[in-house]
């Protein structure tokens, strides 16, 4: 079978969902009928966003998240439920017990701030070791999310593992696809927490 080399190390699912790091799984309440909705995931991209790429508006639950980084507990204080950013917003995500609502598109003409910047978040625990996330934003729009560092703590498998890593789809590409989906696959009721350093990076970026 053919096999492609590493394409790019990952991105982040649910850009907004990763804003809190849970040391234990979060119990999720879910829609009992998968297959009826096909809202776009707030996925991130390693490609430049397209012209009409949605930005992500994030609401962080108060009192969330203790983050363990490299074995040491770190408390991350999160903001009260408030909107942290807007800009041509199409997606609104509420973090933790993970209910996601996708708002209809609104066209906002608010001018994005301060050009292109890149920030790397702190290392966080990851299944095979530690990783950090590098986020680039243009104005208030995130244009790329990549893995900045990936260490395996001596685990020899991580190099092999990453030959399979691929960038996720841009959310608008998925949204465009959804109208022609005839079926949905997925066990879908998992309670795995997202363990990334996105929160720091986004905060640094003012997003």
């Amino acid at each position: 079978m053919k096999r492609s080399p590493i394409v790019a190390v990952g991105t982040v699912v649910g850009l907004a969902s990763v804003l809190s790091f849970h040391t234990s799984p979060v119990k999720i309440t879910l829609n009992p009928s998968p297959g009826t909705t096909t809202a776009p995931p707030s996925t991130t991209t390693t490609r430049p966003a397209k012209k009409h790429a949605p930005a992500t508006t994030t609401t962080v639950r108060p009192g969330a998240t203790t983050t363990t980084v490299a074995g040491q507990p770190r408390t991350t204080t999160t903001t009260a439920p408030s909107t942290t950013t807007t800009a041509r917003a199409t997606t609104t995500t509420t973090v933790a017990p993970t209910t996601t609502t996708v708002a209809p598109t609104t066209t906002t003409t608010a001018a994005p701030a301060t050009g292109v910047r890149t920030v790397t978040g702190p290392l966080v625990n990851y299944y095979y070791g530690e990783l950090s996330v590098k986020v680039t934003a243009d104005g208030s729009k995130i244009t790329s999310v990549t893995i900045g560092t990936l260490t395996d703590g001596g685990n020899p498998r991580s190099q092999q593992i990453d030959q399979y890593a691929i960038p996720l789809l841009e959310p608008e590409a998925l949204a465009a696809q959804s109208y022609k989906i005839q079926s949905v696959s997925g066990a879908s009721y998992t309670s795995a927490g997202f363990e990334l350093s996105m929160q720091y990076a986004l905060k640094k970026l003012g997003l």
Partner: peptide, 9 residues
Amino acid sequence: VHPDDAQRL
């Protein structure tokens, strides 16, 4: 579907 959220793909 997203493992955490059946409303997202």
